[in-house]
Write a protein that binds this DNA or RNA. Structure first.
Lengths: 337, 337
DNA sequence: TTGAAAGCGCTACCAA
DNA sequence: TTGGTAGCGCTTTCAA
């Protein structure tokens, strides 16, 4: 049987109110003598206050909900670590929800978190915010910070990378290395970051007077296998390219796998660039040229934001925190000039 | 303002008890007419019952706590996915706690979970169970399943790999390929799996009449960086080896990185074997020979076990479920004979 | 079929 | 400095 505050109160011959006071470290209102006695009892009986009962009264908790698209993409664990680090520094815990790349599951998790008195949500939505989800968000008065995306909700707090510029730099890098026909493997087209990256691709092409060719663009899904199949589809559509930019590293690696299987050498025959700079990027051969996101730091910032909002310091929190990309040049791009 | 069961009851002109009945799908005790009306109101006002209040009464929840050592080791996300899959099929949610390779944090999480009425815990302890933690476990009456370890607690439920045999097969493979001086990079020596793997190493050596040389054994910590430094230390101790077995893939990859940096070729000069068969293993060059754990399946089994226990079918749950390893031969071992 | 009411473990307010 | 107590939102038992 679990020991409750009432048990401790009885043993100590005081009221539950008094025990509550020492449990919550209210400095005043408890005599030194009494406090000591209660503290001892708490230790002796290993009393742990029920967070549930407490939550029912206070409507608060020290739990932050975190929704991410896919745990098995190393990008997200890294982000999660950043969030967890500062959360812990401030005494908060994280409940991690893996949306499994599914809109429905994300929505279900949103409900779940709302039912459980988390004190805030950090939301890394994979797809654009659907009406269902938007509705849930607007209805809920929970503090909310978006990470790795910028939904079109006025006044919402977001931390994200300048994705457009990032992809622009990738394409520019390819261009400057003499590539003219550049394939592009996207993410899901209804995702914010994919769209931004796509714009970066288009803009760079425009700025360098390269005609856009829709045959060079093929849709992917951010997982490795999909990079493999996207590569296959691209190759069936056209063989007229010397480089491919991918919307993430996982797909780039999948694409390279396919290319190798077809006897095509990277980067000698085809150059490939990734996105994210996950650990694997520097471990595969050729080492993957990619663009790094300061993802751990982004996690830290998001966590600080949500905690500020939770603790009533929301006014000093900026709406948008935008991070700059960092092109990491390795060995998967050939100099063509 | 959040709408409560009381609000719905008022709008529907019934008692909260009746609303509660329809919310909980109690088939009998509510008139068809009433039920319909309430259901509509619930939809209209988007009523979500408070899991917290409910938990306070029932002392149950649909949340399973999961403690893992380190999210950034791809092994654990994979396991987590397996667990989550089954959990979701049964209407349970996972609250994921990343112990960050720290005993203290694990202990803190154990407390955290106990305070929050999770209905069960799946625990992947990194280090051996300390007395503090053992105490917490014994005191708590929560259903508990250990995964990826077998603590010495009588009657505890565990699912794990036959680690000893797995490493035996690794060493045997090396031996059969003509290696006689085999280095060994361990995990933390107070971890169950490390110890078992170490025994496997020793046993194989014995069975093949290879003298044990303590200079060939060096301690690691299961992270990539540590493989790198372990390799360095090993090399400083002795240069008299042709192969190295590592207690996980991450360290194997770190070790290879160090070897390459020193101008030593894998596998031509030194052979390296990993453990776990995470995705990266087949992506690095040379492709890593390693031993696969059916980790997703292990997660599924653990989840099924805990749910069975939670739902009172604990008697049909076996104490131990042991999985067999699967040696995956790739390109990181040289034939020396 | 329905309602009234107790009570889950705690916090917070008011009174002593 | 302390205690009494209402009430958080729900489930559950008993009675109607």
């Amino acid at each position: 049987m679990k020991v409750t505050i009432k048990d401790i109160a009885e043993k100590a011959n005081v009221s539950v109110a008094t025990v509550s006071r020492v449990v919550n470290n209210k400095s005043k209102g408890v005599g030194e003598e009494t406090r000591k006695r209660i503290l001892e009892l708490i230790k002796e009986y290993d009393f742990q206050p029920s967070a549930v009962a407490r939550g029912l009264v206070t409507k608060k908790s020290k739990i932050i909900g975190l929704i991410i698209p896919d745990l098995t993409n190393p990008f997200y664990p890294k982000m999660t670590k950043g969030i967890e680090d500062v959360a812990h520094e401030h005494g908060y815990n994280i409940i991690l929800c893996d949306g499994n790349n599914s809109k429905e599951k994300e929505a279900a998790y949103l409900d779940f978190l709302n039912e459980h008195y988390v004190c805030g949500i950090i939301y890394n939505n994979f797809h654009n915010i659907s009406d269902t989800i938007l509705n849930k968000i607007l209805k809920s008065s929970l503090p909310l910070v978006f990470i790795d995306s910028k939904p079109e909700i006025k006044g919402c707090k977001c931390v994200y990378l300048d994705n457009q510029r990032a992809m622009y730099e990738v394409i520019e890098h390819l261009l400057l290395n003499g590539h003219r026909k550049i394939g592009f493997i996207t993410g899901p087209m209804d995702s914010y970051s994919t769209n931004e990256r796509y714009k970066g691709y288009i803009n760079a092409l425009n700025d360098y007077d390269i005609p856009f060719d829709s045959n060079l663009v093929v849709k992917g899904d951010y997982v490795m296998k999909d990079g493999y199949y996207a590569m296959e589809r691209l190759y069936n559509q056209t063989k007229n390219f010397t480089a491919i930019a991918c919307c993430n590293d996982l797909m780039a690696i999948g694409a390279i796998e396919k290319l190798e299987e077809m006897g095509i050498k990277v980067p000698e025959d085809i150059s490939v660039v990734g996105f994210d700079d996950i650990d694997i990027a520097r471990l595969v051969r050729p080492k993957l040229t990619t663009v790094a996101q300061p993802i751990h730091e982004m996690g830290r910032v998001a966590a600080n934001m949500i905690i500020d909002i939770i603790e009533g310091k929301g006014s000093k929190v900026k709406d948008d925190v935008i991070f700059e990309p960092n092109l990491v040049v390795r060995d998967s791009v050939k100099k063509n000039n």
